[in-house]
Write a protein that binds this DNA or RNA. Structure first.
Ligand SMILES: [Mn+2]
Ligand SMILES: [Mn+2]
Ligand SMILES: [Zn+2]
Ligand SMILES: [Zn+2]
Lengths: 126, 126
DNA sequence: TTATATTTGCAACCTAGTTGCATTAATAAT
DNA sequence: ATTATTAATGCAACTAGGTTGCAAATATAA
C-alpha cells in the first residue's frame, strides 16, 4: 500500500484500527497509547497513514480530529465521500456506507464535501 | 427576537454581520474588533446571538468556528439545515441556499446534519 | 557491518477557546 | 431622577489540541 517503515509504533496503531469498529479521535488515541509512544509520534504516524491511504481523517462537531480505516482506498483513489455519524448520546463516531448526493451548485466548482450527521446510534436508539 | 442588552459591543457585532456577505470566523472577528472589545466578549456575545437566533455557527474544515446571520430563523425554528461552502482558493465561507437530502439511516435517529462543501467559489472559479 | 534515511522523544511552543472574579454598564424599580 | 438589580465586560490566567526543531534511536539499503 505504501512506503512506511514498520516500526513498533506504526504496528500498534494499525492493530488498534484493525480491531476498532468505529472511528477514533486523536485525543483518544494519544491517551490510549501514552505508555507506548509519544504524543507527537501519534500525530505523525496518523499523518503518514493517511497519506499512504490506510486511514482517512475528518473533523467532528467538537472540532477534534478523527481517524478511521479506509475500506476500499489506496493512494490513487480515495473513496471517502461517505458521511460520518456521531452519536450525541455515547459519543461514538462511525463511517456510514451511504451515499449523500451533493447537488450541483451554480458557478462553483465542488472539490470535496464533508457530511457529519448527529443523532442516536444503533445502540443508543433502542 | 430575544432578551439581550443592546450594548455597544453587541451593536458592533450585529453591524458587522449585517453588512457581511459571507460567514465570518471567530478568529477574524476577534482580530477585527480588537480595538473595540475584549476577545472574551466577542466569544460571549456570539454565543448569546446564537442562542437568541440571530446567528448560527458551524465548524470549518480547519476546525475553526464560523458564524453567519440567520435568514429565516427565530429561537423556535432553526432552519439551518443548509450546507456551507468554503473556498479552497480565497478562504471565503458562505451559506448555500440549497437543499441537501440526508438519506434515512437504518436503526438510527438523525438529529442534525452538517454539510461542508469545499471547492472554488464564484469569484475564484472564473 | 556499515552507511543512509526515516522515525522517535522531548521540550518548548502556538493558538483557539474557556473560566473566575472584580468592575462597569444597562435596565427595572421606586 | 435615584437607587437597586442584573447582565455584560475586561483582564489575566488557564486549558487543550496540535505543531516544530533538533538530537538520539532505529529501520532499511549497501
Ligand atoms: Mn469514514
Ligand atoms: Mn449558514
Ligand atoms: Zn450511541
Ligand atoms: Zn474563492
Amino acid at each position: 500500500m505504501a512506503i512506511i517503515r514498520k516500526t513498533k509504533s506504526v504496528e500498534a496503531l494499525l492493530t488498534l484500527f484493525n480491531k476498532a469498529e468505529n472511528a477514533m479521535s486523536v485525543v483518544e488515541l494519544v491517551k490510549q497509547l501514552e505508555d507506548e509512544m509519544n504524543k507527537t509520534t501519534v500525530y505523525r504516524i496518523l499523518e503518514r497513514l493517511e497519506e499512504s491511504g490506510h486511514l482517512h481523517s475528518f473533523i467532528g462537531k467538537d472540532g477534534l480530529t478523527w481517524y478511521a480505516k479506509c475500506k476500499d482506498c489506496d493512494e490513487a483513489h480515495h473513496h471517502d465521500a461517505h458521511p460520518h455519524f456521531q452519536c450525541l448520546n455515547c459519543g461514538k463516531v462511525e463511517c456510514l456506507s451511504v451515499d449523500v448526493s451533493i447537488p450541483k451548485i451554480p458557478n462553483r466548482e465542488v472539490v470535496v464535501s464533508h457530511v457529519l450527521i448527529q443523532g442516536k446510534c444503533e445502540s443508543c436508539v433502542k
